[in-house]
Write a protein that binds this DNA or RNA. Structure first.
Length: 553
RNA sequence: UGACCCAUGGUGUAACGGUAGCACUACAGAUUUUGGUUCUGUCUGUUAAGGUUCGAAUCCUUAUGGGUCAACCA
């Protein structure tokens, strides 16, 4: 049962805390802001936070950081919950920072009473101007020395709605010359007369991230508050507030967010792609969102495996999307039902076949003995893949060519006897003969062929739509240059095959089935399917050694 | 001209002062009724310079490189 995998730096910290008796159990939280859909980067954080409390005693909360009513919506709350569950995790408590607005307000009053916070009348521009720069100290606001009574009165009136948006803020009184910009009297509360998705119109002042996140952690007795590296400078303020408020001392730990090449993982950028119509919604199968990956056919198992393999550390990184693809292939290879679909059909007529339909047996999955078999029809007119024929084949082309033999998967060996072309010289049909004694499973022909092709019987073929995807961006890191990341969108990221031919068994496909279309890739039924027209999304292609060979020349 | 974080093959991640390992990728081969899978093998790495030590990827110093910080966003 014991894993051999070595500990990451957070597991090391936790094991020390447990051994030293600092904690008997650990409490973590996954804290999304409900202003967008979760993406693969969040999956990493989810697996980390929930994985830690599966491994060690304790539990994980789901907490929505909903302190900015102008960007947050219930739609996002619902999608986030669905995605976390789909990934296979269940939270102990569902919480919202907005649950704590009353407590937070009281905390703010406490700081005022202790002379540690003040109401400032400066405009955003003025505050920015007196804040200084990373290399220059800031200067005190003229309102910094208001009396406690005055601050209290003003803050209450802010809450009462007496002032318009942006008129005043509540700021912590720390040090305007601090080397850490975040310690230069950070804003704690701002006025926003906005409707909140949970508290409605009860509040017109809302706490800032720094005055909500750490306090919420503390209220929930979070022992290990795990976030990404860009919050490192916030830790000093996180600790300062907890100390001055004398509340439960949660601790913040930071790890490097995972970046993946040929995509973007930024809610802001993903939102742009959706709003500007570069993709068809948050769950477009090309998106790096959890919902997009789900629709694309990725499994929760494969995403969890990916997160486990890329690990947790503190250095900048750009993970190869090839690893994600490896993980999904690895899983799908074990569970996907094998089916035959011809995307670009070339007609084959067997000149020595009667035309009577014969039902042949084929395994659903050679990797799984329990997957069983299915029947596929065989007759004298078949479709094979156009790319599996070449009139003038190169060396080592183990497929169809004039005079050349191949096996049809789970069926018979055939030989190409004649090539039929239309007026334009386009190949439209192959006349072939088959060897009746070469039937799969009872082959007495003595023939041996190097290539095996997928095929479908023309008469029973079911027309289906195939959606083939390529990477959304044509460069590894679309955010790396000055240029707009959208200028690197791959124009060929979606290719639709309107009418491919599928074997009849596929007519019964359901949304939860996973398929491997032989020699092509893994596919999943799309929600756009209708009884008349099935639509399949390509999850990922099979490795293609021949394509590599061709490329080499 | 500041503070903070970081630095191991192409990529990701281990080695906790004692043989630089694992995975992905790439390449070569075997098997194969999927040019898939599986199996075998090969290539490639400690940013640099000093110091401490019998011994340094690991500890110290400096340099170099990358990242973060000046939203009433989170």
């Amino acid at each position: 049962m014991t894993e051999e995998r070595s500990l990451n730096f957070l597991e090391e910290i936790i094991e020390q805390d447990l051994q030293s008796g600092k904690h008997q159990q650990i409490v973590t939280r996954f804290p999304p802001e409900p202003n967008g859909y979760l993406h693969i980067g969040h999956a990493s954080s989810i697996c980390l936070n929930f994985g830690l409390t599966q491994r060690y005693p304790g539990y994980t909360n789901l907490r929505f950081d909903d302190t900015n009513p102008t960007t947050e919506e219930t739609e996002y709350v619902d999608s986030i919950k669905q995605d976390v569950r789909w990934l296979g995790f269940e939270w102990k408590h569902e919480r919202y920072a907005s649950d704590y607005f009353d407590t937070l307000f009281n905390y703010a009053c406490k700081l005022i009473d202790r002379g540690l916070a003040y109401v400032d009348d400066l405009t955003p521009e003025e505050i920015a101007a007196q804040k200084g720069t990373p290399t220059q100290p800031g200067v005190d606001s003229p309102y910094r020395s208001r009396t406690i009574e005055e601050n209290r009165d003003l803050f209450l009136r802010m809450k009462a709605g007496e002032f318009p948006d942006g008129a005043r803020t509540l700021r912590a009184k720390i040090d305007m010359t601090h080397l850490n910009m975040l310690m230069r009297d950070p804003i704690l509360y701002r006025i926003k007369h906005a409707h909140h998705h949970r508290t409605g119109d009860k509040w017109c002042i809302y706490p800032m991230y720094d005055f909500a996140h750490g306090q919420s952690d503390s209220i929930e007795n979070i022992t290990h508050s795990i976030c990404t590296l860009e919050f490192v400078p916030h830790r000093e303020l996180y600790d300062w507030l907890i100390k001055k408020l004398e509340i439960y001392p949660s601790h913040q730990y930071e790890f490097a967010r995972r970046n993946i090449n040929y995509t973007v993982t930024s809610k802001r950028k993903l939102l742009q792609l959706v709003q500007e119509g570069h993709v068809n919604g948050w769950d477009d199968p090309r998106m790096s969102t959890i919902s997009g990956l789900r629709r694309r056919g990725y499994t929760p198992e494969s995403i969890r495996e990916f997160c486990s393999r890329i690990g947790v550390a503190k250095r900048e990184n750009l993970v190869d999307v090839g690893l994600l693809e490896f993980c999904v292939r690895e899983h799908l290879n074990k569970i996907a039902l094998r089916r035959m679909v011809v995307a670009d059909p070339l007609l084959i007529t067997l000149t020595n076949h009667s035309g009577e339909v014969e039902w042949l047996n084929s395994e659903n999955n050679p990797e799984s003995e329990t997957a069983g078999n299915r029947q596929i029809p065989f007759s004298n007119q078949l479709f094979v893949e156009r790319s599996d024929f070449m009139e003038v084949p190169p060396k080592k082309f183990f497929r169809l060519a004039p005079g050349q033999m191949v096996r049809l998967k789970s069926a018979y060996i055939i030989r190409c006897e004649e090539v039929i072309k239309d007026d334009r010289g386009e190949v439209i049909e192959l006349k072939c003969t088959y060897f009746p004694e070469s039937k799969s499973g009872s082959d007495t022909s003595g023939l041996s062929v190097k290539g095996t092709l997928h095929w479908v019987s023309r008469a029973q073929a079911v027309p289906v739509e195939l959606r083939l995807y390529d990477r959304l961006f044509s460069v590894e890191d679309p955010t790396d240059s000055e240029a707009d990341f959208k200028s690197f969108l791959n124009p060929e990221s979606l290719q639709v095959v309107k009418s491919a031919y599928a074997e009849p068994a596929l007519a019964e496909a359901t949304l939860t089935d996973r398929f491997q279309f032989l020699r092509q890739g893994y596919f999943v039924l799309d929600k756009d399917s209708t009884p008349e027209k099935l639509v399949f999304n390509k999850t990922v292609g099979l490795k293609d050694a021949w394509a590599k060979e061709v490329k080499k020349g």
